[in-house]
Amino acid sequence: MEPKREGISVAALHHQQPAFRGLDAGHMACPGCGQALGARLVTEAIGPDAIIANATGCLEVFTSMWPRSSWRVPWIHSLFENAPAVASGIEAALKAQGRQTKVVVMGGDGGTFDIGLQSLSGMLERNHNVLYVCFDNEAYMNTGVQRSSSTPHAAMTTTSPRGETRMGKRHLKKDLLAIIGAHRIPYAATATVAYPSDLRAKVRRGIEIEGAAFLLVHSPCPLGWGHDGADSIEVARLAVQTGFFPIVEMERGVVAGVMKIREVRPVADYLRLQDRFQHLFEDSREAREELQHLQELADHNIEVYGLRADEPHPRDSEGADTVRRGGMRWS
């Protein structure tokens, strides 16, 4: 253990961090949890004057084991599928009271792509001044890794296992962003915990905009994806650099910007780090075909979103996470 530094109280330091952190330590997320990190980064960008409505899921459970809570912002969890409606009510109340407090929804992919989609659609259609943040870890992790409509094709989950007749999930990942885009809300984007500056900028943009905004944050799950907790950022970064998870922005449903990929990596680099894709590296025709299928899906993303960089840019997949001595990059 490092020697204790004289005159420094770690407990006091939690209350003296130079950036506001709406989610603090002592939560019960697994080591290396992408969602825990993502949620904290989002709270940093929104600041203290905000109310969070949290859908049921890992984030809700691991941050709110009574009598303790990890939140520093007012936070409410009601149910799995109603967080957008609860947020709508909060926003309506704040409007009625003449308050400027920001309203943010946080949910997982289960709560967003599946069970809460109707409620979300309603919130977007009514264009509430709410930022919806979906932490996409591509399965129902809280209940023990069952497939969701966000689970990538061919990924293994407990309800899409690899067996004699199956190579993991049969269906494709739902194109949620297209659905969100079809609501023609002012702003929608994808982001990832691997590029915190990009994530924060998008949160700030989503918050500043008057009206509904949506952010899909790719959040690795060491337990559900089967990778080392230390590799969470690495895995998330590779998802971007392979084209597997495109980073895009939409204004009124139209793609307005993308994070270009400077050096496109083969999807195998991304898949290999994760147990949920290990069966794709077996020596069989099915494995080879499915592996290639995922490569083609990534290539398709690159093509339709125009992800390939023509020339280096400071905000492309290589430049966007460049750090500077003194931490200026993240401030």
Partner: peptide, 24 residues
């Protein structure tokens, strides 16, 4: 250490704490 803030930024458990006044 180059004081890039990576550890502080990326810790999912807020367990890297920053001393605001310390030099890089």
């Amino acid at each position: 250490c180059m004081a890039c803030d990576n550890c502080w930024t990326l810790c999912p458990d807020n367990s890297v704490l920053k001393l605001a006044g310390a030099p890089p």
